[in-house]
Nucleic acid binder design. Structure first.
Lengths: 231, 231
DNA sequence: CAGTGGTCTAGACCACGGT
DNA sequence: CCGTGGTCTAGACCACTGT
């Protein structure tokens, strides 16, 4: 009944020892070589198991110092940020999309600052409303740097959302995300069909390709939206 | 000037090829063995580089089918969920803590449902306010399953927050998180020193050890709070 | 300086799953 | 069936860092 030793076997064993306090928080655990010998596998296997536990925040590893059980395990939550259509469909609803506005205009200061562009740079502005089963779901307010995204000027954003177009056509990139709550102003209340002052969940996202700013977007969700994940 | 080949070298090269459309979305990429030969390294090195790219959502890998560039790269955002004291201190403020309530009571239905406990199970209820530089920062409303957490009945939660006590004394193995916005009711407005109806950012979290429910907590943040991360 | 984790290599076997 | 990724091994060298 002894199953073959894989790195997951080792990982589960390590987790068990942490959970059952055989290895106590803050305490050093045996070296990779010792564990390999004890558990009857190669050091590389132990390494992979422990490396991932360290990445997940359960262990802290340093060269020479060794490995210890994390004292304050930082819980990490990973969110998938799907394109909105998928999000809607994942909730079992039919996705709808309405392009509200598309223009070129000097971007307001908060946007240019976040994208580190000169003040009042002309950017492409796209506003669109996402619907779930016909009801307002999420307002997408976006500013795109056309210099960094050739082709978007010509793209038909009435059929495919800018969100989706960018995911499909723009290079990989990094960026930042902020989650927060904000009250509905008159415009939001009208578009999202809620009362003025209603508490709305919102996401600000900026996207880059290397040092080139691509887009800044604010997604404002209709009341009741919850962003869910597992730890 | 040729630097030693590490898995990160390979990973960057792969990212470059994806970014510059040498490998197009949906397209198959060369096999591990071919890449290893081309890039002058062992297959295991290529494997690690590509495996992590697949985990990050850039590639899709299947046995026999091979590896292809993801068509809809799912953006993933990872949040560190620190203990609140650290969060406050990380913002350059002094953390304060006030225990508001501590009692034992039958938990309301939403809580017992989420924790999959019988209706009206008696749980330990802890309410506490976290302060940043003396101003209300976050209200912690928590229900703890005392059967699963021996020792908490005797713990002094006026000095250390329940949040921190649990992190230190229980091994949390899993759970769920939900982020949302909600309006301040009368109690929240009073405690967080904001107006009734103000838009507040809130987090519902449930925690488990294996199949045993440990705790359900709602963290409600004072207006203006933003949860920030990088992609 | 010396111990520990980080990584690479070359070879091997296996499980999955298209064909 | 058999190609592809998934993983293990044994040995090796290296980088970092505490002492």
């Amino acid at each position: 009944m002894t199953q073959p030793v894989t790195w997951q076997t080792i990982q589960n064993e390590a987790l068990r020892r942490i959970r059952e306090r055989e290895w106590k928080p803050g305490e050093m655990i045996p070296h990779e070589a010792d564990l390999a010998a004890e558990l009857g596998c190669a050091r590389a296997t132990v390494n992979r198991a422990l490396r991932e536990l360290a990445a997940a925040g359960f262990l802290e590893r340093r060269r020479k110092a060794g490995t210890r059980v994390a004292l304050n395990p930082v819980r990490k939550a990973t969110f998938d940020i799907p394109i909105i259509r998928r999000d809607v469909e994942g909730r079992g609803a039919v996705h709808g999309y309405r392009l509200l506005e598309r223009s070129s205009a000097p971007a307001p200061a908060p946007v240019t600052t976040k994208l580190r562009l000169p003040a009042r740079t002309r950017l492409l502005r796209v506003s669109a409303l996402h619907l779930a089963d016909g009801a307002p779901f999420c307002l997408e307010d976006r500013w795109v740097n056309p210099a960094a995204v050739p082709g978007i000027e010509a793209a038909d954003l009435s059929a495919v959302s800018a969100n989706e177009w960018l995911v499909r056509n723009v290079t990989l990139s990094g960026g930042g995300i902020e989650f927060f709550a904000m009250p509905a102003d008159a415009r939001l209340a009208a578009v999202l069909a809620c009362e003025e002052g209603a508490a709305l969940f919102a996401i600000d996202r900026t996207t880059w390709t290397g040092a080139t700013p691509i887009t800044a977007v604010r997604l404002t969700y209709a009341p009741g939206y919850r962003m869910v994940t597992a730890i």
